[in-house]
Computed example of a mutant assay.
Amino acid sequence: MHETQLLLRVGNLPYFMSDSNTTERNHPSTFLLLGIPGLEAAHVWISIPFCITYILSILGNITILFIVKRDPSLHEPMYYFLCMLATTDLVLSTSTLPKMLSIFWLNSREINFSACLTQMYFIHSFSAIESGIFMAMALDRYVAICHPLRHSTILTNSVVTKISLAVVLRGGVLVIPYPFLARRYPYCRTNVIPHSYCEHIAIVKLACADIQVSSYYSLSMAILVTVMDVFLISVSYTQILKAIFGLPTKDARLKTFGTCGSHLCSILAFYIPSLFSFLTHRFGQNVALHFHILMANIYLLLPPMLNPIIYGVKTKQIRDRIFRLFSR
């Protein structure tokens, strides 16, 4: 059987893809992740803050889960949503960082085709889930500040469970078409992904077929999920700010604003890099590729590290439990 080889050159690195490495539907058996193109010489140095970020993310989010589980007084809607956020951050970090570090340290760039699509699904579905959790937490803060006497009757355990299920199902179901559409395309040009993880648009751009369906669906997802969540979060915090400025004393205003400020920091750390990455894929042809990939990595790495720090420091109940835990 005659085999042909395709010489691929990315930067100064040649890659070969043989016809024998493709399936009957022209799927490559593996993809090659380049890490951060243009910064290959600095991969080892870049891996150091990435590794530290990952360790802090794991330790911080596990600590949040452990403290909330052990303390019955923290079994309230806000802390339930915080536990969901910690779990989501653990999944996002673990689905991307180990492979990134293997690229940076071991030059292990290959990833199985199915494993790549699985990683893509986890990244995008749990990103959508995290966005929904921020919306749910904004709703909880709105009820707690604007309707404090009715908080326990509005956000009952049953309501919190329904909100949580809706958030998880929305993120899980809406992203299902991503891997199915990506699997249908033929990949006859190259199997090299100029990225450090399997991002949806970065994969489908390699297809030698019309990818308008995937592109339009991705855009619809961004509008449906991100824009809607950001809008509802903005409405909630607008009402919260009105309620804060209506408080009788300055100390009460500062205390309440401090609590909401920590939430806003987490929200901004999540949405700003994600919107930058999304817009760059479509309109940022003049943005340097290495800068784009770095921002895409920050979008997945920074929030999981910052969230437990922000909530652990700014939330008095959790801060007191952490001090008590380590003092023992």
Score class of each variant (00 low, 15 high):
Glu3Ser: 01
Thr4Val: 00
Gln5Cys: 09
Asn12Pro: 10
Ser18Tyr: 11
Ser18Val: 02
Glu24Ala: 11
Ser29Ala: 07
His43Ile: 06
Val44Gly: 11
Ile55Trp: 07
Leu56Cys: 14
Ser57Lys: 05
Ile58Asp: 03
Ile58Ser: 02
Ile62Lys: 06
Met78Lys: 14
Met78Leu: 10
Cys83Arg: 14
Ala86Tyr: 04
Ser102Thr: 11
Ser108Lys: 15
Arg109His: 13
Arg109Thr: 08
Phe113Gly: 01
Ser114Thr: 12
Cys116Phe: 01
Thr118Ala: 12
Ser125Tyr: 06
Leu139His: 01
Tyr142Lys: 09
Ser152Val: 00
Thr156Met: 07
Val160Tyr: 02
Val167Thr: 15
Val168Gly: 04
Gly172His: 05
Phe180Val: 12
Phe180Thr: 12
Leu181Gln: 08
Arg183Pro: 00
Cys188Ser: 13
Val192Ser: 02
Pro194Glu: 13
His200Met: 06
Val213Trp: 08
Val213Phe: 10
Ser215Glu: 07
Tyr216Ala: 04
Leu219Cys: 09
Met221Arg: 05
Ala222Gly: 11
Ile223Glu: 10
Leu224Gly: 10
Phe231Tyr: 12
Ile233Ser: 02
Ala252Asn: 14
Ser266Leu: 09
Leu268Tyr: 15
Ala269Tyr: 08
Leu275Lys: 00
His281Pro: 03
Val287Trp: 07
Leu289Val: 12
Leu294Val: 05
Leu294Gln: 06
Met295Thr: 15
Leu302Trp: 02
Arg319Tyr: 00
Arg321Thr: 01
